[in-house]
Simulated assay, not measured.
Amino acid sequence: MCTLTLAWRTFGDAPVALAATRDEALDRPAEPPGLRGENSSYVAPRDAEAGGTWIGLSASGVVVAVTNRWLDADREGDRSRGLLVRDCLEADSAEAAVRAVERELRDRSYDGFNLVLADSVAAFLLEYDGELAITRLDPGVHVVGNVGGVVNGIARFVIPDRRREFGADRADSARRIAGALVPEPDESGGGWLDRASALLADHEYGACLHGDAFGTRSFTRIRVGAEPGESAFAYADGPPCETPAEPVSLPPGFGVN
């Protein structure tokens, strides 16, 4: 599943603030966040099975995160969606990452996805179900999951018939999360991230999932600071309800446009 919460150009101290859960098979191997890419160009965890990632921050301040997109029929993708995230983290800007995705999809197909791309200049939601839809995000709070989300203040959900009941639960969770994460007066980006982190760990909101073979595997929070040295990355290698998010070391000046 996965739930992404993004505050974009909402707080002066954090042009981009993202908190997200990752839901995955419990036995799928993963590596913790580290410097990766050519010339250590981004920080991200790594899917040890396919080699890509689901979330990351680039040296140039681009934040990338993906969820799968539930469809009525699974697609036979040519390539892992996590490798597409890796490609985007190598781009110089969110706008350049969008263009990279467009070029990639001319030659290859993927299983369905929702891809969030953001830096201090622009932010986008890319939705793919065999066709690509691009939405430029407005300043504010956005919540994205497997059946859509609350984007630019509008609830946009597409629930496939084969997952009607569980999909309705996912849509309800996203709506309630979006309603609870409206910025408070005089709130900072760091304060909002604290609230988002606590909410994604709260089972009342339905984002932290537990099962025998599948559930919430990790939690990530990313802040792109307004000045060099202000960006931050934290990661919990386990469900956020029981696993503290630990800071990940960033090089000086990393993560600012």
Rank of each mutant, 00 (worst) to 15 (best):
E95T: 14
P139A: 11
S60H: 11
T135A: 14
R69D: 00
E102A: 08
S93Q: 10
Y110S: 03
D92Y: 01
L115G: 03
D74M: 09
L84Y: 06
V141E: 05
N114T: 01
A123V: 07
R108L: 15
D87E: 15
L71S: 01
L105F: 10
G130R: 03
V98K: 10
R136Y: 08
V143R: 08
A118L: 08
D74C: 02
L57P: 04
L115H: 06
V85W: 00
V62E: 07
D111C: 09
S109R: 15
V63W: 00
L57W: 04
A91S: 15
A122T: 12
A133Y: 10
N114A: 12
V121S: 15
L126Y: 06
V62Y: 06
D107Q: 13
R75T: 02
P139F: 12
D72K: 00
R103K: 12
S120E: 15
A91C: 15
S93H: 03
L84Q: 06
A123S: 14
N68E: 04
D87Q: 15
L132I: 04
R81Y: 08
V66I: 15
L137R: 07
P139V: 11
G140Q: 08
N68M: 05
E104K: 02
R81P: 05
S58W: 01
N114C: 05
D129P: 01
D78P: 11
G77D: 07
R79Y: 14
A73Y: 05
Y110I: 05
L126K: 05
S93A: 14
G112L: 03
R99K: 14
A65P: 02
L71D: 02
A123Y: 07
S109D: 10
R79Q: 14
S58H: 07
Y128C: 02
A133G: 02
R81S: 06
A91N: 07
E127H: 09
V141R: 03
D72T: 09
E76T: 13
A73L: 09
S58K: 10
S93M: 08
R99T: 13
Y110P: 04
A122V: 06
A100P: 00
R75A: 13
L89D: 03
V64E: 05
F124V: 10
L89K: 08
W70E: 01
S93V: 09
A133C: 01
R86H: 11
Y110H: 15
V141M: 06
L125S: 04
D111I: 00
L83K: 13
A123Q: 11
S80I: 03
L84V: 14
D74N: 11
R136V: 14
S80E: 08
F113L: 07
